[in-house]
Design a protein around this nucleic acid. Structure first.
Lengths: 144, 144
DNA sequence: TGAAGACTATCAAGACCTTGATGATGCTCA
DNA sequence: TGAGCATCATCAAGGTCTTGATAGTCTTCA
């Protein structure tokens, strides 16, 4: 074993991410939205007409994953997918009226989690955390 | 929207975690192991005879998730589950001989990712990162 | 002794994510 | 024009994770 389990930074990152996800999931439960669905709606609100592939990039997942989530959201009536018979390659996605209402409500709930994390750190701390995480990210990606 | 998208620390944490997972998944691919399977094998190596629930706690998932992974690993012949007819409540899990060989090989590959992250930061940086992530974790969990 | 509460295992359904493969579209450049 | 390449959408299969529910076991305590 190269590194002792307690020395592994991956665990700390994972634990923070897990706590973050759990808190968001709980905040979104009353709206019957999953975290993935919320992230997708958020990307749609900020980028009307974005493609499924674009959502995938914004949410850090594969296009297949975003397509599945879009399908669920379309079935819920929260998203409208513009199907063009003359161009099957690009299918812009937009929020429905209900989707727009819900994403604002969801963002008030889930945004509070983000706000708590934001408020728990000083501006300097936030900057430091971002920088260190960026170094980790680069180190993980290198050579891989 | 309470916070601008670029101001959200959750994204940085998620991105670091995603890069970390991707690098480990790639390192483990030649062994035909997923990250979840690797984490389970590691927990088993460090805690022989641990219960499924114990693995779940170590891996930060639900008992159901660990049970599913154990089932896969048992089918692969990497894990042996001791079934007691007189006590169906507790089923200790252990590595098979092949499982033991594979986990060591896997840890050399995946541990290198962890090592890269470790080496990219000074001891002080690592300490700071841990502390800040801990604060984020606590902030996310509070009130939720 | 016996009830309460905690822990464990497991089934089932649903959602999400991944890799791999396929096919269509659009842009660029020789 | 036409080949090459990047991008997009989608099908399929496998694995992981969740919530919810059911049930056996163990410990504690009145």
């Amino acid at each position: 074993m190269a590194l002792a389990a307690s020395e592994r930074l991956g665990y700390d990152i994972k634990a923070a991410e897990a706590a973050f996800m759990a808190a968001k999931a709980e905040a979104l439960r009353p709206m019957d939205l999953t975290v993935a669905q919320y992230a997708t709606l958020l990307a749609l609100r900020d980028n009307p007409g974005i493609s499924g592939a674009g959502i995938a990039r914004a949410c850090l997942v594969t296009p297949q994953a975003s397509a599945a989530t879009l399908k669920t959201l379309e079935a819920k009536g929260l998203v409208v997918r513009e199907a063009d018979d003359w161009n099957r390659n690009s299918r812009p996605n937009r929020l429905s009226e209900e989707g727009r209402r819900l994403v604002d409500r969801a963002d008030r709930a889930a945004g509070a989690v983000e706000q708590r994390m934001h408020d728990a750190l000083s501006p300097t701390d936030r900057d430091t955390l971002r920088r260190l995480l960026g170094r980790c990210r680069a180190a993980a990606a290198s050579t891989s």
